[in-house]
Lab assay of single mutants.
Amino acid sequence: MDVFMKGLSKAKEGVVAAAEKTKQGVAEAAGKTKEGVLYVGSKTKEGVVHGVATVAEKTKEQVTNVGGAVVTGVTAVAQKTVEGAGSIAAATGFVKKDQLGKNEEGAPQEGILEDMPVDPDNEAYEMPSEEGYQDYEPEA
């Protein structure tokens, strides 16, 4: 019985440690998101679009440190934060509304985080759909 109880105690310690790591990862992701939003706020009209992409990228980098179902929630929060940063930029006159959601080359930025393969159960990952990809044929 002692062996059984000791095993359960060790398992509990492992769960607590994993929860603490997840909590730490979420806190880091939130900190990076805040950094990115402050970065966007300090940019001029020309830099705002690039700044919004930076927020998304920093958040995406930190999301990889967070495991399990938390990833889905962090990704949703990050996307809403990026959308909010863009709205703030438009409201303050840093950028025109028609410039939001495009990178410096004018290509749409939507789907940055949505296409990231995420499995809350950590069982399997699927690649994003290939609808947006084109076949590449090298020139002879």
Rank of each mutant, 00 (worst) to 15 (best):
residue 1 M to N: 00
residue 1 M to K: 00
residue 2 D to G: 00
residue 3 V to Q: 04
residue 3 V to G: 01
residue 3 V to Y: 07
residue 3 V to F: 06
residue 5 M to K: 15
residue 8 L to Y: 04
residue 8 L to W: 07
residue 8 L to P: 01
residue 8 L to N: 00
residue 9 S to T: 05
residue 9 S to R: 14
residue 10 K to W: 09
residue 10 K to H: 04
residue 11 A to V: 13
residue 11 A to H: 00
residue 11 A to P: 00
residue 12 K to Q: 08
residue 12 K to A: 07
residue 12 K to T: 15
residue 13 E to S: 01
residue 14 G to P: 00
residue 14 G to L: 08
residue 14 G to F: 03
residue 14 G to M: 04
residue 15 V to P: 00
residue 15 V to L: 13
residue 15 V to W: 14
residue 16 V to K: 09
residue 16 V to A: 10
residue 16 V to D: 01
residue 16 V to S: 15
residue 17 A to R: 08
residue 17 A to K: 05
residue 18 A to N: 00
residue 19 A to W: 09
residue 19 A to I: 02
residue 19 A to M: 06
residue 21 K to D: 00
residue 22 T to P: 00
residue 24 Q to D: 12
residue 24 Q to H: 05
residue 26 V to Q: 00
residue 26 V to I: 11
residue 26 V to D: 00
residue 27 A to L: 04
residue 27 A to H: 04
residue 28 E to W: 04
residue 28 E to N: 04
residue 28 E to Y: 04
residue 28 E to A: 04
residue 28 E to C: 05
residue 29 A to F: 11
residue 30 A to V: 15
residue 30 A to W: 01
residue 30 A to R: 08
residue 31 G to Y: 05
residue 31 G to T: 15
residue 32 K to P: 00
residue 32 K to N: 01
residue 33 T to L: 11
residue 33 T to I: 15
residue 34 K to W: 13
residue 34 K to S: 01
residue 34 K to L: 09
residue 35 E to R: 08
residue 35 E to D: 13
residue 36 G to D: 02
residue 36 G to N: 13
residue 37 V to R: 00
residue 37 V to D: 00
residue 38 L to C: 03
residue 39 Y to R: 02
residue 40 V to D: 00
residue 40 V to L: 08
residue 40 V to G: 00
residue 41 G to N: 08
residue 41 G to T: 01
residue 42 S to L: 08
residue 43 K to D: 00
residue 43 K to M: 14
residue 43 K to W: 08
residue 44 T to G: 08
residue 44 T to H: 03
residue 44 T to V: 03
residue 44 T to N: 02
residue 45 K to Q: 03
residue 45 K to W: 15
residue 45 K to V: 13
residue 45 K to D: 00
residue 46 E to I: 14
residue 46 E to R: 11
residue 46 E to Y: 02
residue 47 G to L: 10
residue 47 G to P: 01
residue 48 V to S: 01
residue 49 V to R: 04
residue 49 V to C: 08
residue 50 H to Y: 12
residue 51 G to C: 05
residue 51 G to F: 05
residue 51 G to L: 11
residue 51 G to K: 00
residue 54 T to R: 15
residue 54 T to S: 03
residue 55 V to W: 13
residue 55 V to D: 01
residue 56 A to H: 13
residue 56 A to L: 10
residue 56 A to S: 01
residue 56 A to M: 05
residue 56 A to G: 08
residue 57 E to R: 05
residue 57 E to K: 10
residue 57 E to V: 13
residue 57 E to Y: 06
residue 58 K to Y: 07
residue 58 K to H: 14
residue 59 T to A: 15
residue 60 K to W: 09
residue 60 K to C: 11
residue 61 E to F: 04
residue 61 E to D: 01
residue 63 V to W: 13
residue 63 V to C: 05
residue 63 V to G: 04
residue 64 T to W: 10
residue 64 T to M: 03
residue 64 T to E: 08
residue 65 N to T: 11
residue 66 V to Y: 07
residue 67 G to W: 10
residue 67 G to H: 09
residue 67 G to D: 01
residue 68 G to T: 06
residue 68 G to W: 11
residue 69 A to Y: 14
residue 69 A to Q: 04
residue 69 A to P: 05
residue 70 V to H: 03
residue 70 V to D: 04
residue 71 V to Q: 11
residue 72 T to A: 08
residue 72 T to E: 06
residue 73 G to F: 15
residue 74 V to Q: 04
residue 74 V to K: 01
residue 74 V to L: 08
residue 74 V to A: 08
residue 74 V to C: 06
residue 74 V to I: 06
residue 75 T to P: 02
residue 75 T to Q: 06
residue 75 T to G: 07
residue 76 A to C: 11
residue 77 V to C: 05
residue 78 A to T: 12
residue 78 A to W: 08
residue 79 Q to N: 09
residue 79 Q to S: 06
residue 79 Q to A: 11
residue 79 Q to Y: 14
residue 81 T to P: 05
residue 83 E to I: 02
residue 84 G to S: 14
residue 84 G to K: 08
residue 85 A to K: 04
residue 85 A to M: 13
residue 85 A to C: 10
residue 85 A to N: 10
residue 85 A to V: 12
residue 86 G to C: 14
residue 86 G to E: 13
residue 87 S to P: 14
residue 87 S to K: 03
residue 88 I to Q: 07
residue 88 I to S: 11
residue 88 I to D: 04
residue 88 I to Y: 02
residue 88 I to W: 09
residue 88 I to C: 13
residue 89 A to T: 06
residue 89 A to W: 13
residue 89 A to E: 08
residue 90 A to K: 02
residue 92 T to Q: 04
residue 92 T to S: 15
residue 92 T to E: 06
residue 92 T to M: 14
residue 94 F to Q: 08
residue 94 F to H: 09
residue 94 F to S: 12
residue 96 K to I: 13
residue 96 K to P: 10
residue 96 K to N: 15
residue 97 K to H: 05
residue 98 D to Q: 11
residue 99 Q to K: 02
residue 99 Q to V: 11
residue 100 L to R: 10
residue 101 G to Q: 14
residue 102 K to W: 09
residue 103 N to I: 13
residue 103 N to K: 04
residue 103 N to R: 06
residue 104 E to K: 10
residue 104 E to I: 07
residue 104 E to R: 15
residue 104 E to V: 00
residue 105 E to K: 01
residue 105 E to W: 01
residue 107 A to G: 13
residue 107 A to L: 14
residue 107 A to E: 05
residue 108 P to Y: 05
residue 109 Q to A: 01
residue 110 E to R: 05
residue 112 I to W: 04
residue 112 I to F: 04
residue 112 I to L: 06
residue 114 E to S: 02
residue 115 D to T: 12
residue 115 D to G: 03
residue 116 M to R: 06
residue 118 V to S: 08
residue 118 V to L: 10
residue 118 V to Y: 13
residue 119 D to E: 07
residue 119 D to M: 14
residue 120 P to R: 10
residue 120 P to A: 09
residue 120 P to Q: 10
residue 122 N to P: 10
residue 122 N to S: 08
residue 123 E to K: 14
residue 123 E to T: 13
residue 123 E to L: 15
residue 123 E to Q: 15
residue 124 A to H: 15
residue 124 A to D: 08
residue 124 A to Q: 04
residue 124 A to T: 02
residue 125 Y to V: 07
residue 125 Y to A: 11
residue 125 Y to D: 06
residue 126 E to M: 06
residue 126 E to S: 06
residue 126 E to G: 14
residue 127 M to S: 10
residue 127 M to E: 12
residue 127 M to K: 12
residue 127 M to I: 08
residue 127 M to C: 11
residue 128 P to C: 09
residue 128 P to E: 12
residue 128 P to A: 09
residue 129 S to M: 06
residue 130 E to S: 03
residue 130 E to Y: 12
residue 131 E to K: 09
residue 131 E to W: 15
residue 132 G to E: 15
residue 132 G to K: 07
residue 132 G to N: 11
residue 133 Y to R: 05
residue 133 Y to D: 02
residue 133 Y to I: 01
residue 133 Y to N: 07
residue 134 Q to D: 01
residue 134 Q to E: 01
residue 134 Q to G: 06
residue 135 D to F: 09
residue 135 D to N: 10
residue 136 Y to W: 12
residue 137 E to M: 11
residue 137 E to K: 04
residue 137 E to A: 12
residue 137 E to I: 08
residue 137 E to L: 05
residue 138 P to K: 07
residue 138 P to Q: 06
residue 138 P to C: 11
residue 139 E to P: 08
residue 139 E to H: 12
residue 140 A to K: 10
residue 140 A to Q: 15
